[in-house]
């Protein structure tokens, strides 16, 4: 039990007077694939950022049985839409190579071996033909796939993704889900903020219903019920879904 990939207790985050997270608690078993679902402003992105230590939240977060800070090498994060300068002089392959920084360090040579590994990561997301393109020359969906490839390069065991399917084309969506399912089959743990309730059951096997605090968590079959959704979203969602 101590090796559980991520265990979150009582996570609370305050922006000024606004309470973004109010004692959210959840645990994510190994090789599970969990959708974080909840209404707008429920603190889903804040949950991921707080787990990573990017926001100064209070509460207890343990990854692989220890503090998150000690497990960072085993965790990868794919932001919703990376807030980067798209005219930055990097090629697609350079972005993926950044994922090897923990191995290459300051001066370690980036030899053929790393180049080949980076190409393999790109091939996994279907972007191998774009390796020499400048990052800004890609579509939004393609850019999202490159950032997933960078996460793959990190060789993590726990993947945190913030709305990986938001605003991407159908080809990207299916490429990403194939990669995620493949990672899960290899024993990795996936946690993704997800917006589209209609695909939750197809894509994920666990759900965390979040509205500043945990409404419910567990397998899709037991949690993804009308009753629990109504508690998370309020009754209006039911009308919209009907």
């Amino acid at each position: 039990m101590s090796q559980i990939p991520l265990d979150v207790r009582d996570l609370t985050l305050r922006y000024g007077d606004v309470l973004a997270l109010d004692g959210a608690t959840a645990h994510f078993p190994k090789a599970s694939m969990t959708a974080i679902v909840g209404p707008n402003g429920a603190g889903k992105s804040s949950f991921l950022k707080s787990v990573l230590g990017l926001e100064a939240a209070s509460g207890e977060v343990r990854a692989f049985g220890g503090p998150v800070a000690d497990a960072m090498a085993r965790i990868a994060y794919v932001p919703q839409r990376a807030a980067v300068d798209w005219s930055f002089p990097v090629r697609v392959i350079d972005v993926v190579l950044m994922g090897f920084y923990r191995q290459t360090g300051l001066l370690g040579r980036i030899d053929r071996r790393f180049q080949a590994k980076a190409m393999a990561c790109l091939a996994r997301v279907g972007m191998q033909d774009f390796a020499r393109r400048q990052i800004g020359a890609l579509s939004g969906g393609q850019q999202q796939r490159v950032f997933l490839a960078r996460a793959l390069a990190q060789g993590a065991e726990l993947y945190l993704l913030d709305e990986p399917f938001a605003g991407v084309d159908a080809a990207t969506e299916s490429a990403i889900i194939t990669v995620l399912k493949g990672l899960q089959a290899e024993g990795a743990t996936i946690i993704a903020v997800h917006h589209d309730l209609s695909t939750v059951a197809d894509y994920f096997d666990r759900v965390l219903l979040l509205n500043r605090h945990t409404i419910a968590e567990g397998s899709v079959a037991e949690i993804f019920t009308r009753d629990a959704l109504a508690r998370a979203y309020g009754p209006s969602l039911m009308l919209a879904a009907e």
Binding site: M72, M98, L107
Partner: peptide
């Protein structure tokens, strides 16, 4: 020259750089 990698990573994506231990 020594710092070129972390400098480039921080300039490109500071959040990712931070998660990579920089």
């Amino acid at each position: 020259w020594v710092l070129r990698r972390p400098l480039a990573m921080v300039a490109f994506d500071p959040i990712h750089a931070r998660l990579m231990g920089i």
